[in-house]
Design a protein around this nucleic acid. Structure first.
Lengths: 119, 119
DNA sequence: TGAGGAATTGAAGAAGTCTTCAATCAGAGG
DNA sequence: CCTCTGATTGAAGACTTCTTCAATTCCTCA
């Protein structure tokens, strides 16, 4: 097993690095959902969604249960919901921070417009 | 600009999804570091490290300043350090959770060893 | 000015990930 | 049993990302 922690982390983040997977995790944050609902809410093609759900399942971050012909997905644990919250908070902060940075940049570049192509 | 938030998030996580980048961010969490130090601490090849640093720079999550012949990198803001802390905490929790799951699984599978190839 | 070290860049091939299509599985109901 | 619907799987091709090598930039010091 002996895998360095930073590699586990990298894999974990890579696992999160897809729009559909993020959306699904956020939707599941509201509570368990059937595949039909995820399909409707995300608007992606069925097989494409299934592929991404499989990725999440393999990562052990969601669970699926079948009830008759319908399959319900849920977050595997409370940690995952925490993670999604943390991610949202941090991302929003960071994007806000970047917006400010952009503003600053735009102001300061006026004087150096001609001189600096390198930033 | 109008990019959906979940896509921004996905890109952000994808940006984090590489062992060397994670390591660098964690090292920079301790404070600014020169490239020479990052090279020594990570043990990767110079040009490979540079490539990953470039990714982090493009994402605006680290900054670089040149002092003579040496280049120093630092986290672009306190949010990033927060993120790394959150990530460590969550990841450790999740891995712990998975270890427990694994234990449970091992116990419960004893009875069903022969029957179940599917998990 | 030129030799030399530190860091970055560019580009090519290998390796991995996404999307899509057809095929398959699992249950419900005629 | 057959077929229909919901969901999943497998596989091929397009597309990204990684690694590595050579080339380049930027600075220092003689």
């Amino acid at each position: 097993m002996a895998m360095p922690l930073y590699q586990a982390k990298a894999e974990f983040f890579r696992m999160l690095g897809h729009p559909v997977r993020i959306r699904v995790l956020e939707l599941l944050g509201e509570g368990p959902k059937q595949v039909r609902d995820l399909l409707a809410d995300t608007g992606v093609e069925a097989s494409s969604l299934s592929q991404q759900l499989a990725v999440l399942r393999r990562a052990g971050i969601v669970t699926s249960t079948r009830e008759g012909t319908a399959v319900t997905y849920a977050l595997a644990g409370p940690d995952v919901a925490d993670l999604m919250l943390a991610a949202r908070r941090i991302l929003t902060e960071m994007l806000a921070g970047q917006a400010e940075l952009l503003d600053e940049l735009r102001e300061t570049t006026r004087e150096t417009d001609t001189a600096a192509t390198r930033t």
